[in-house]
Simulated assay, not measured.
Amino acid sequence: MKFKEIDVTKSSGEKVRFSLDKLRNSLSKSGASKTVIDQILNSVRDELYQGISTKEIYNRAFALLKKQNSHYASRYKLKKAIYEFGPTGYPFENFVSAVLKYSGFNTKVGQILQGKCVTHEIDVVASKNGNTIIIECKFHSEEGRNCNVKVPLYIASRFKDVKTHWDLKPQETDLNECWVVTNTRFTEDALKYGKCVGLHLLSWDYPKGDALKDRIDRLGLYPITVSTLLTNREKQFLLSRDVVLCRDLIGDSFYLDHLGVSETRKQNILKEVKTLCNS
């Protein structure tokens, strides 16, 4: 069997041809050197077999990267780390709010806004330069689940109802924009409809160059779940205390004391998250 004939199985069940270049690009975002990346690629390539899952390839590459440097591994696992927010969407809403704050917005999470017909619970309300935007967050805790056209259809109608009421009386800010943010992807129909009605769509890889993953890397706003040193229990405890960013933990390190983390381990964890924030 030739290497180029290897097909891999995506989380959705779809079979696609394995791309060494795609894996190389993914690893390069970790910050690892070309030498380290080449070593990992050679190891992974030797272990491929027909029908291997992309998850298995990721796990193997992650393990090899972690052996080299935990900081590289943390950056590499960014997408998976967001899935680790848990079964509810609340930590993701806090995360989106935090990303917008570092872009200069004043934000509030879980706000009730009056519409012309009914009230609506809005995930995030953000204001900047005299303008207010409302953001709906669609979080999926499992890979392979994308936002279909029903999502922008539903959100566009909610936005119309809120805006109609908003414009009935003078407000401190204008409301002219609605965002839909997801940690996965939009289907083609969802993108087409969203753009047609004027929604701002933000997904893991859309829009190109300014997608969610690009904003995280550009601002150094890594979720606490990227840590390779914190346990799952510790991550969930921190998320329950609204500590969603590595930057948050630096300022609220007393939570590690509350968890009973030893001083040596505490310093290693803080070193890891500081390195990420400054990368």
Rank of each mutant, 00 (worst) to 15 (best):
F18R: 01
F18N: 01
S19Q: 10
S19T: 11
S19K: 09
L20P: 00
L20S: 13
D21H: 13
K22E: 15
K22I: 08
K22W: 10
L23C: 08
R24D: 10
R24Q: 11
R24G: 04
N25S: 09
S26E: 15
L27K: 06
L27C: 02
S28G: 00
S28H: 05
S28R: 14
K29M: 14
K29D: 09
K29F: 12
K29C: 08
S30D: 10
G31M: 05
G31K: 05
G31W: 09
G31N: 09
A32D: 04
S33T: 15
S33W: 04
S33M: 05
K34T: 14
T35L: 10
T35Q: 11
V36P: 03
V36Q: 10
D38V: 00
D38G: 00
Q39P: 00
Q39T: 09
I40P: 02
I40S: 07
I40H: 10
L41H: 01
N42P: 00
S43K: 12
V44M: 03
V44F: 04
R45S: 15
E47S: 14
E47P: 00
E47M: 08
Q50G: 01
Q50S: 06
G51I: 01
I52A: 07
I52G: 03
I52W: 03
S53K: 11
T54V: 13
T54C: 03
K55Y: 03
E56A: 12
E56V: 06
E56D: 12
I57V: 11
Y58C: 00
A61N: 01
A61I: 00
A61Y: 00
F62C: 00
F62T: 00
F62E: 10
A63T: 13
A63D: 14
L64C: 04
L64N: 06
L64R: 05
L65T: 03
L65M: 06
K66D: 11
K66T: 09
K67W: 06
N69L: 09
S70G: 03
S70E: 14
Y72W: 14
A73H: 07
S74F: 04
S74I: 03
Y76L: 13
Y76E: 09
Y76Q: 09
Y76H: 13
K77Q: 13
K77M: 04
L78M: 13
L78H: 05
L78P: 11
L78W: 08
K80D: 15
A81L: 07
A81G: 01
Y83I: 13
E84N: 12
E84P: 01
E84D: 15
F85Q: 07
F85K: 03
P87N: 08
P87Y: 02
P87I: 07
T88A: 08
G89R: 09
G89W: 07
G89F: 09
P91V: 03
P91L: 02
P91F: 01
F92G: 03
E93I: 13
N94G: 12
N94P: 06
N94S: 10
F95T: 08
S97A: 15
S97C: 07
A98N: 13
A98K: 15
V99D: 01
K101V: 11
K101T: 12
Y102P: 01
Y102W: 11
Y102E: 15
Y102I: 14
Y102M: 14
G104D: 09
G104N: 11
F105S: 06
F105E: 05
F105T: 06
N106K: 13
T107V: 14
T107L: 10
